[in-house]
Write a protein that binds this DNA or RNA. Structure first.
Lengths: 338, 338
DNA sequence: ATGAAAGCGCTAACAA
DNA sequence: TTGTTAGCGCTTTCAT
């Protein structure tokens, strides 16, 4: 049996569908529909458990009350946590989230944007991969609200919410140096995206500020799509070839976890003479013996800012054509010494 | 500027919108539209970068190519991993995922189902909370494909994919007993849902089979919505009051992590005389010193089965009214000794 | 205070 | 082989 439509309600109530529509949309008062009619219609709506078809409504009004969330990988705890917070806030405003993972593949990212466009999502939240600048620009010219996060795309007038990646590694590196470390390895991923670059630059600058020469032997890039075994091999090599290393700074959370597993494997002890710092906090680091210091990103705050900026745009999108300046929000990471 | 519509394409190409529609939907051959026309239309489609409005299409066809995913909390790694795998598979078949977290609140769960219904999602994947049986039954009578997972709802003819929770704790407990443990504490959550109940029953049965008396002093239920501090306090109490405990079996992943943090806090060492077993694997357990044994759930397999069952129903839903028997899939967990 | 009717963009039955 | 047209369920303008 097909679900009831507004037409069924109208005919049962002996009123026009217009009247029902007004009542549904809270315009009854404004349209001065009589209390009696309102009540009668509402009773019938309840009786039929009628829910307006959102698809039809979307077609008519042009908005879907849906936000497209495009991240690298929803199963990464960083993105999953953000997704959750965003979902919460969006839900309260009547928006739903549709999500997708890009796997850092610009082709897939483009497809996803197309798909979301075809589905008429009202707004986008994107952790951008390099190579989708033009698609995002396109969204912008179509005046569709967009917030990018985690990574910035340089030279674009787009709302963003990022963490000061440069400063994150800067403070971490400085801390290591100040606690006596001289040979600080840097393990990162081969993605030359803004936020990873900046993490490297912060590390480099801290070394420089403290008069330590950057040593490229103890700088390692792990391919993003490296297999577990390859990653392990590469890290083992790093430690074998460079016994002088007295600290390691990992530029991402998952690399640090891999790193800890390798250290465990080769039975290299973490102690006062050999420190580890990870980027992005995780239960693993709290629980590790010894606990691992981290650069902590303010996830909750990020999610909050993202959704605030977006809802704000969504609210104003309708009633103005004036291009406001993009919101550029840079949050500060915290170094957590453990 | 509004995006192009099928009408624009048709008029540019001097053909009717029907022709364009057929070409778009791959029915050109079948409708024996001439090669020349197809080519011309395709060129124009590309030129305009035309993407059919999925909302209009949905209104017309009645399906949205969207699957609603309702879980307890998308930021929980277990659900996040499943979500990711499901997304992948669904995407390949042209389906998108809309997700929502219930926070174990039946009221919210009901609202979410309503919301998804209003949005006309084609199918549901639900990790059910107690109290939504009737909503799910309703979906079933409306012949909307549903798969529930993680937890089973007893006495319902609905597709489900679950892990044999009873057996999971059964083998874990047996293992502990066989390695000489006599006072095995059980820490669980106060949710009396099917899968948690079964985990307790497996534990109880293993004790019984080995002739050990269940001791309720070392059985602890932590409220689902307990604050961090309360949880900590409750666990500390457990260990203080019952120094005879020589092993702890946690019924969930997050409780085990909490537990490890507490043990760290009270400096209680994990060693041959005091073992921990967690439910659901996690990097934390691999990396922990010493590593923690776990009951591992086959996440990938679950996701695969879920989506297989669903796509299967989706494919057959259209061409048959025959009620097939529900797929009831029970996967086996694995005990990983560490 | 309420209703008639157009139209959002698309699909598909029916015509030609 | 291609075109005409009704209609999916709703919102909203214009009438009354």
């Amino acid at each position: 049996m097909k679900p009831a439509s507004i037409k069924d309600i109208a005919s049962k109530a002996n009123v026009s569908i217009t009247t029902v529509s007004f009542i549904l949309n809270g315009k009854a008062e404004q349209m001065r529909i009589s209390k009696a009619v309102i009540e009668k219609v509402n009773t019938i709506i309840k009786e039929f458990d009628f829910k307006p078809n959102q698809v039809a409504r979307s077609l008519r009004t042009g908005n879907t009350q849906t936000i497209g969330l495009i991240v690298e990988d929803i199963s990464n705890p960083f993105f999953a946590s953000i997704a959750r917070k965003i979902e919460d806030k969006a839900y309260k405003k009547g928006y739903k989230i549709s999500y997708s993972s890009t796997e850092n593949d610009p082709v897939k990212a483009k497809e996803l944007i197309e798909m979301f466009k075809a589905r008429q999502v009202d707004a986008y939240i994107i952790a951008p991969v390099p190579g989708i600048e033009s698609e995002i620009k396109q969204l912008l010219t179509e005046r569709i609200p967009v917030v990018i996060f985690d990574r910035n795309l340089p030279d674009m007038e787009v709302n963003y919410v990022v963490v000061d990646n440069f400063n994150g590694t800067y403070i971490a590196t400085k801390h290591l140096i100040d606690s006596g470390k001289k040979n600080i390895a840097f393990v990162t991923v081969d993605l030359h995206v803004d936020q990873i670059n900046n993490r490297f630059l912060g590390y480099e600058k801290a070394l420089q500020d403290r008069g330590i020469q950057f040593n490229k032997d103890i700088y390692t890039e792990i391919p993003f799509d490296s297999t577990d075994d390859n990653t392990t091999a590469q890290l083992m090599l790093l430690f074998e070839k460079n016994p002088e290393i007295d600290a390691v700074l990992f530029s991402t959370n998952y690399l640090a976890i891999k790193g800890l597993l390798v250290l465990k494997l080769i039975k290299k002890e973490i102690n006062d003479d050999f420190s580890i710092v990870a980027y992005d906090d995780h239960d693993v680091f709290k629980l590790h013996t010894p606990p691992i210091s981290v650069v902590d990103q303010p996830i909750e705050e990020m999610a909050e800012k993202i959704i605030d900026v977006l809802l704000n745009e969504l609210a104003s999108a309708s009633n103005t054509l004036i291009k406001k300046e993009a919101s550029k929000i840079i949050l500060q990471p915290k170094f957590i010494k453990r």
